[in-house]
Computed example of a mutant assay.
Amino acid sequence: MTENGRLDVALFGAGRIGTIHAGNLARHPHARLRYVVDVHAPAAEALAQKHGARTASVEQALSDPAIAAVVIGSSTDTHAELIQRAAAAGKAIFCEKPVDLALDRARACARAVKQAGVVCMIGFQRRFDPTFAALKQRLEAGEIGKPEVLVITSRDPAPPPAAYIASSGGVFKDMLIHDFDIFRWILGGEAVSVHATGGCPGLPEVAAAGDLSHTAVTLRTRDGALCQINTSRRAAYGYDQRFEVLGSNGLLQAGNVRPTEVVAWSDQAISSDKPEAFFLERYRAAYALEIEHFFDALVNGTPVRTTIEDGIKALELAELATRSWREGKALECAV
């Protein structure tokens, strides 16, 4: 910890999400961004200069005893190695989802974290979204009784490039992993069965890349609660992120976030802003709140709410959904 009570942090990744995390770290009263690490030197240099940090190699950042924590926002294929190396160096870890695309490597990361005894938080930022979190609080307060059905809608505004899709691990691991985490968080239980299907209506380029553009997944918990997740890699009207919970005594809905809440009424129509453009805008507050929570854990010993075990559980569901789609049948979960 620095003389002014801040913890020195190394940030891995200077892309879109790294830039968001860098800004939140720079604004946090208990953090000091010391290093930015990225294979693309100009991006690392620009981000470091913006926030009064320095660039460094992985080795330099992890070997510096002043570094108390690392924030991993680099590409998915780097997560597992960085988690294990950071754990071995005794650094607290915040890592974007997923832990890895392969379950065996993700589980190896969990073992490394446990052996090192370091704090490790996985970036499932949707749990920190103010609207989603408010729904969860009201659900836990018993407002609608026992939850029976969860319906999640998750749609991107446009598909990513084919090169990204080909290396993403597939839509269930790349896109729906957040929705699988929401399922576990909101219903508070584990799935006993998963049935996934999908297609590429109107998006042959996604099919050519070996993936799905649209999916429908049904999960069932041990006590019979159901979850239906519908996703699309294309929504002409913007980034569509909402869900609803039907309970024994009512319904709770969490809707989209819009740039403004102004609604225009005329003799022709009633109109409002479209949903936010994409995830960086939609979850702006959530990204700041999850970093705040991470440092609360480091400074005050608060248990992290999104653990590496949560990352593995979501990855297990993504793996099972992928198999279900390929095999064309519902699959039972090992619980």
Rank of each mutant, 00 (worst) to 15 (best):
R6D: 02
R16D: 02
I17V: 15
G18I: 12
T19Y: 05
H21E: 01
A22E: 04
A22W: 04
R32K: 15
L33A: 10
R34W: 10
V37Y: 05
P42H: 07
L47S: 05
G52W: 15
V58N: 09
E59C: 09
L62Q: 05
S63L: 03
D64F: 08
D64K: 11
A66I: 06
I67W: 04
I72R: 12
G73S: 15
L82T: 14
A87Q: 06
G90D: 02
K91H: 04
D100R: 15
D100I: 07
L101F: 15
V118K: 12
I122S: 04
F124D: 06
R126I: 00
P130Y: 11
T131E: 03
A133V: 01
A134S: 06
A134F: 10
K136R: 15
G142M: 08
E148L: 15
T153V: 08
S154G: 01
I165R: 15
S168E: 05
V171G: 05
K173S: 14
L176V: 05
I177A: 13
I177R: 08
F180V: 02
I182K: 04
F183M: 10
G188F: 05
P201Y: 12
P201H: 14
V206W: 11
A208D: 13
A216Q: 00
R220M: 08
G224Q: 02
L226A: 03
C227H: 08
R234M: 15
A236R: 13
Y237P: 01
Y237T: 04
N249T: 13
L251A: 09
L252N: 02
Q253D: 00
A254G: 03
R258M: 06
P259E: 05
P259S: 10
T260W: 15
V262A: 05
V262G: 00
V263H: 01
S271T: 15
D273W: 13
K274C: 07
L280M: 04
A286D: 05
A286T: 03
F295T: 03
V299M: 05
V299R: 14
P303Y: 11
T306M: 04
I308A: 01
I308W: 11
K313I: 08
K313Q: 09
A314C: 10
L315V: 06
L320M: 11
T322V: 07
R326T: 00
E327A: 08
E327F: 13
V335S: 06
